[in-house]
Structures are given as C-alpha cells and as structure tokens.
Simulated scan of single mutants.
Amino acid sequence: MSGYKRPLVISMGDPAGIGPEVIAKAWQALHTGPTPFCVLGDPALFRSIPTQLITQVSDSLAVFKDSLPILHGFETPGVVVGQPDPAHAEVVLRAIKQGVDLVLSGQARALVTAPIAKSVLMAAGFRHPGHTEFLGALLEAAPFEQTRGPVMMLAVDGLRVVPVTIHCALSEVPLRLTQEAIIHAARVTSEALTRDLGVKSPRLVVAALNPHAGEDGAFGDEESRIIAPAVSALQAMGLSVRGPLPADSLFHAEARATFDAAICMYHDQALIPLKALDFWGGVNATLGLPIIRTSPDHGTGFDIAGRGLARPESMIAAIQMAATMAEGRSNS
C-alpha cells in the first residue's frame, strides 16, 4: 500500500486512564479527514462512539469515516476506569509491541501511543523508565541508516525542545551531562528535522545549564567544560548550532524565531517553556528510530478518567504530527 493509503495505529495506553477517551474524541474530530487510524485496544472502552472490529490494519480504510476501527485481540476484562491494575500490563505492552511490528512491516504508517502508567507496569515487571526507552529496546536490532536514538522531542506550534537528560533527579543532571550525550541528541535532532519534518538546514540552539550560562565560571563550570566543547564539535561536523545560551532568554518569541529546535540540559528546562506556550497541545515524538512514533504530552489522568473531562488536543496534534512525519520520511 502507498503511504497515504496506510493508516496510523494507536496503542490504547492504560485502559483505566484517559487514553480511550481522548482517542474517541480524536476520532470524532478527524474521522472525515485524510488521516485514518486504527486502535490496538479493547472495544468495550469506546462505547461512546461507533466502533468496528477489524482483523487487519488495512480494513481501517473502509470503515474509518463511519466508525473507529479496533484491531481484534486487545481485550482488558475487568477494567475499572480510574483504577489502574497491573493485571492489564501484558495487554498494554503487547499493544505497543504489535504497533511497532505493524509499522516495521509496512502495514501502518506510524505509531501513536496513548499514555501508560510506568509505576503500574513496573509493578508487573516492566523495567524501562518509559515509552521512549522501551521503544528503543524494541527497535535496537531493526535497520536504520541515520544516527540511532531514541531521543525525545517535545513540540508545539512554534517550539521544539529536546532534553538531553530526562527522568532523573535534578541533583543527578550534572553527573549525567556529557559532551557525548549533547552531541548525540543534537545529531539525532538535526537529522530528524531534515528527514521527517522537511527542515532543509536545521538551526539548533543549545541551552546552558547554569544561570547566566555560568557567568564565566562564577556559577558553575559545566558550560566551559562540557557544553561549549560539545557545541564546537557539532559545528565542526557542519551542523548549525549556537550555544551554550542562557535558558532564561531563549524562549521568548523573537528568540524562538531564530532556531528550529532547542537542545536543553534537563527535563523541566525543556518542558516549562513548552507547556507555558501551549499547555494542551504538546506532542512527544521519539526521534532516531526506524519507525515514526508520537504521543500526547500528558499522562494517564486517572483522577479525571471516565468523567468526560479529558481534552483531546494533544492526542489530535500527536496524530497529525505522526502523519506529517511519516509523509516526510516517505518523501526523503
């Protein structure tokens, strides 16, 4: 099947969370448009909309306009909405794994993952920090011609950010920050911007770690010892990179217009400006993989699950970005 005739696949995430709700609302918003998708999940969780059980992904194309296609085989009996249960971990992980396989085999264009609860999965034996690392492990042996990730990019309209360190205590960030990690994140980001998002000559900025970019060593030496040498190495590779730049002046409108992505040193340095700019519409994209994968930039929302309160903007944006990236990769 040609690219535009292949659907996306969406893994349902934790069945007790808001994943099924935002997927259903996304289908309601998109079912008459050009981006068909099917769900790897339990049809019992989607009773608010018309659904159609299918046995192969290609069947999505015939039914998507009138009903949400759900691939057979991902039932999660006993779900109590809002109450996560490790008993469902096997199905949650199997949905992700099958989604990866469907994209690798060419049956689907891209994978969109609804939120998982890492603590719930870990209680059932899951040993990865999150989706990003799990996908990296699943795809470790798959052929890929560019610099391999996984690297996490968060995006909203007008801003893309890539944290070099992700899920760790703030006190651990200086210990985990290395020249190699910065160079790797920037290379993967630059290649993905070109290959998947059509940015011909990506412009990157690299944030400093310390206030005032260290103030010539007065507030720390990570800038001179780690970050600046990494920037110089990237420039020597031919990449358009500036930094280290003080993070407090990096994200206002005029500054954002000068770069295509910001390489940030830690989680909140990247996420705070992104969520301040657009709290509801953020997308998490995993770069440097043999497949396209995006996800809404929010959690499982167990506290509001089943109450009709979950907003679908982030899921809709994740679906649309996955389609854009898949199209870009097919044309590269």
Rank of each mutant, 00 (worst) to 15 (best):
R6V: 01
V9E: 05
G13H: 00
D14C: 14
K25A: 03
A26R: 00
A29L: 01
H31S: 00
T35R: 06
P36H: 03
C38F: 08
A44C: 09
L45A: 09
L45R: 00
I49C: 08
Q52M: 06
T55V: 01
D59H: 03
L61P: 15
V63Q: 11
S67I: 14
L68I: 06
I70V: 02
F74G: 09
T76Q: 08
G78N: 15
P86I: 12
P86T: 12
V92L: 05
L93S: 14
R94Q: 10
A95E: 11
I96V: 08
I96P: 13
L102Y: 12
L104M: 05
S105V: 09
Q107L: 07
A108G: 06
R109G: 14
R109S: 15
V112P: 12
P115L: 00
P115W: 02
I116P: 04
V120D: 02
V120W: 03
M122T: 15
A123M: 03
R127A: 05
P129T: 04
E133S: 02
G136T: 12
A137T: 14
A141T: 15
P143Q: 04
F144S: 11
E145C: 03
G149F: 00
V151I: 07
M153P: 13
V156P: 06
D157G: 08
V161A: 02
V162N: 05
P163S: 06
P163N: 04
H167M: 11
A169M: 00
L177C: 10
Q179D: 14
Q179V: 15
I182V: 04
I183K: 00
R187D: 05
V188C: 06
T189Y: 00
T189R: 12
E191L: 10
A192K: 08
A192P: 13
A192W: 13
L193G: 09
R195D: 00
V206C: 15
V206L: 01
P211F: 02
P211K: 02
G214Y: 14
D216L: 11
G217C: 12
G217W: 12
F219C: 06
G220W: 14
E223C: 05
E223K: 05
A230P: 14
S240L: 15
R242V: 10
G243L: 10
P244E: 09
S249Y: 06
S249G: 07
A253V: 05
H267N: 10
D268W: 06
P273N: 01
L274S: 05
T286N: 10
L289W: 05
I292C: 03
F302T: 05
D303V: 14
R307M: 09
A310E: 09
A310H: 03
R311C: 11
R311A: 09
I316C: 10
A323N: 06
T324W: 07
E327I: 04
E327G: 06
G328E: 03
G328V: 08
R329E: 00
S330V: 09
